[in-house]
Nucleic acid binder design. Structure first.
Length: 193
DNA sequence: CTCCCGATAT
DNA sequence: ATATCAGGAG
């Protein structure tokens, strides 16, 4: 299951709500959420309690409701409700870090973006493509390693690979198509025998 | 570093 | 029982 969205604003909102949460839960409430709050202005005007009511099934819902409201207030104040197209502008918004900013740029605007979320971070570590122990530093190193035209594609592929195959807990190394590149996976497979 | 939060997978 | 989940703020 991947996040479903119709425009950059929806992706921005969903990405904030998706922190440490599964896509399934987000997709479940997104219709009601955007029916009640179709625009940044409507979220900015709503009370925190009104937002909480709609997103209650999401983890960290209280904090996220607060962040989401503050985010939309800034979005209206600084950018007239238009979702920015650069990381530097996006991370000025409460609840938006580099990961979420890059997600919006890559997924929402189809611009070059290296997205280092938990999955990408883990996969890159395991295949030793970068050994950076900080996601932001890893993003910078990957910018040097990966040609810019592939940034977004690369991110999405590794993200989904991490989610479905190279999982945090029981990685399915026997189904992995890049195990030849991965010492971690090869040593895991040997141990099984 | 901890906290936010609770459902689901293993 | 506990690890994990499209992280970010303090």
């Amino acid at each position: 299951m991947e996040l479903e969205y119709e425009n950059p604003f929806q992706l921005l909102v969903e990405a904030i709500l998706a922190a440490q949460e599964s896509d399934k839960v987000i997709n479940k409430i997104r219709h009601e959420l955007f029916k009640k709050f179709p625009t940044p202005h409507s979220i900015a005007k709503a009370t925190q309690e009104e937002i909480e009511e709609v997103i209650k099934s999401i983890n960290f819902y209280r904090r996220k409701a607060k962040l989401l409201k503050e985010c939309c207030e800034k979005l209206v104040e600084l950018f007239k409700g238009e979702v920015p197209t650069t990381v530097e502008e996006l991370i000025k918004l409460p609840g938006v870090g580099r990961k979420t900013a890059n997600m919006v740029i890559g997924g929402g605007y189809n611009l070059p973006a290296i997205i280092v979320d938990r999955h990408v971070f883990r996969v890159v570590q395991r295949i030793s493509l970068s050994k950076q122990k900080n996601p932001d530093k890893m993003e910078m190193e990957l910018r040097e390693i990966v040609p810019q035209e592939f940034w977004t594609k690369f991110s999405m592929l590794l993200l989904n690979h991490g989610k479905r195959v190279c999982k945090s807990r029981n990685p399915k190394c026997d189904e992995c198509v890049i195990i030849d590149l991965c010492e971690y996976g090869q040593s895991l497979e040997k141990r099984k025998k």
